[in-house]
Design a protein around this nucleic acid. Structure first.
Length: 483
RNA sequence: GGCGACAUAGCCAAGCGGUAAGGCAGAGGACUGCAAAUCCUCGAUUCCCCGGUUCAAAUCCGGGUGUCGCCUCCA
């Protein structure tokens, strides 16, 4: 499989550090608020990367950090008169609620900055000892000139950046681009003891220290949003390679940005949407499906119409699964050989899906292939073969393929037994609802038998207003919840 | 000022040198008491514009135009 590597600007074939095992680190959120849509894209996308790698048989070690020590957290805590660490911990819990809703699997390790001070301080000390960093008044800065190749990830030179610098230069720095590894604490700020006095880590050092601790040098995939290339990932590379003398990361992956109504979403512009705000209007599965319907390196625009259109498309996929379940209900394929016509198509579709995903995780193409699968299933259901043992066996195979695709993209949630949930559980007693509906449906069937269309349509219309859709078929009446 | 990305039907979106996936919307047909769902058929003679390379370009090169992003906290 091939991955677009930001470091080289090319797609490269994935050759893990250790055969059969992929190590990956993704920059997680700074937890000073609920996560927004922009945070959700990498979370969902890299979750999909991980799922696919596992699907391909790799053992995956996935690490995603939480930045729980940071200026923004301190500011927020001050506003809310709360303790920064407590506040950050609370938003970590909230993060999991949103991530769970989006069907994101937990990382193997979720390290927090506040729990890795020893590693961070050790790394800063190493950098100072090796001459890559210098301390000034309790702060420690990384000396970018000392690191040959600074700028190689983002493709810029120190000269370019000096020319374009728009920041006020701190006189104490050797070079304007020197960045803080350690910041001295002001009174009242959370602080940890260090050789340079009480203070806290700079932003970039945490990811270096934690990724190296859990994954070692030259680990496989490091991911994050496009905006992290510079300065965050550039600085991580500089720190890590200077400290260890080894290559830091093999493949850098960066997802594109999300815009809202064609406008960049940013914290400073204040036009960002929280994940839970979107979830008030759209099902989490629709949000996840939409996030994956565009290639991860392209920008993705959110607006209600687009989400609605995606929701309709997803509904079509779910309908196909419903029809499949209906056709398979109470039937055993036995040891019949699957209908060749469908079976051959199924094999083709699996190859196409894998080819799409192998090519830099082309989830957009992959979702298109699921629509092809849905059409093939629906179409086969119309054919006479559908009722034969061979047909049932082929449909069973189709269902397995559908489940396999869904297992990779993670769009539809499953219960403990792995069965895809087609309707959102809403806390009602489903068996009672089912029984009541059967009574109502029977009454309506009687009306239909008497050609009392007014009564029959009236029942159907009223149920629709309650969010229950009735569909009359040859074999009986089908009902489903809508919205 | 420096660096970079992208421009494909009404909308969204794949495509990475071999003759335009898929979804939404729309039109017609089948099925239906009517619907719904599903199936079938139809849509870009063409991929922002202009040159060039090639037997062959949406895909490569050069030049325009436009949009967006990074260089500052941000996924």
């Amino acid at each position: 499989m091939h991955i677009y590597n930001t470091k080289t600007g090319k797609k490269e074939s994935l050759i893990p550090r250790e055969p059969g095992k992929v190590t990956m680190y993704v920059c997680g959120p700074t937890t000073y608020n609920y996560i927004h849509l922009g945070n959700a894209r990498p979370v969902v996308f890299f979750d999909t990367v991980r799922r696919y790698l596992k699907y391909k048989g790799y053992e995956v070690l996935y690490v995603q950090n939480f930045t729980d020590v940071d200026d923004k957290i301190i500011n927020r805590a001050r506003e809310e008169k709360d303790d920064p660490i407590v506040l950050a911990a609370r938003y970590i819990e909230e993060y999991f609620r949103d991530a769970d809703a989006l069907n994101v699997m937990r990382a193997d390790i979720h390290p927090r900055v506040s729990e890795h001070m020893t590693e961070i301080i050790d790394m800063v000390r190493t950098l100072v000892e090796k001459g890559f960093a210098y301390a000034v008044d309790g702060d420690v800065y990384y000396d970018v000139y000392k690191f040959e190749g600074y700028g190689k990830l983002s493709g810029r030179t120190l000269e370019d950046m000096r020319a374009g610098a728009r920041v006020d230069v701190d006189e104490r720095k050797h070079h304007p681009m020197d960045f803080a590894l350690w910041k001295s604490a002001k009174p009242g700020e959370p602080a940890w003891a260090s050789p340079w006095g009480q203070g806290r880590p700079g932003w970039h050092i945490e990811c270096s220290a934690m990724s190296l601790k859990y994954l070692g040098t030259n680990f496989d995939i490091h991911g994050g949003g496009y905006d992290l290339i510079f300065p965050h990932h550039e600085n991580e590379t500089a720190q890590s390679e200077a400290a260890t003398g080894e290559p830091f990361v093999r493949y850098w992956m960066h997802n594109g940005f999300i815009t809202i109504n064609q406008e960049k979403m940013s914290k400073s512009l204040g036009n960002f949407f929280l994940v839970r705000e979107i979830l008030e209007k759209f099902k989490p599965e629709v949000v996840r499906f939409y996030l994956l319907s565009t290639h991860y390196r392209s920008p993705l625009d959110f607006d209600d119409e687009k989400l609605t259109a995606a929701g309709k498309g997803l509904e079509r996929l779910k309908t196909s699964l419903r029809l499949l379940d209906e056709a398979l209900a109470g039937r055993e394929p036995g040891d019949a050989i699957p209908d060749a016509g469908l079976a051959v198509r199924l094999d083709e579709l699996r190859v196409q899906f894998e080819t799409a995903m192998d090519d830099d995780f082309n989830t957009a193409l992959a979702t298109g292939i699921i629509f092809d699968l849905a059409r093939d299933i629906n179409s086969f259901l119309h054919s006479a073969s559908a009722n034969t043992p061979a047909g049932v066996a082929a449909l069973q195979k189709a269902k397995e393929l559908f489940y396999a695709f869904n297992g990779v993209l993670g769009v539809l949630k499953t219960d403990k037994k792995g069965k895809i949930l087609l309707d959102e559980p809403d806390g009602e007693d489903d068996s009672l609802v089912e029984k009541l509906l059967q009574v109502i449906i029977q009454m309506r069937q009687n009306a239909r038998k008497n050609k009392d269309w007014a009564a029959a349509d009236g029942i159907r219309d009223q149920l629709k207003e309650l969010g229950i859709v009735l569909e009359d078929t040859h074999s009986g009446v089908r009902w489903k919840k809508q919205r």
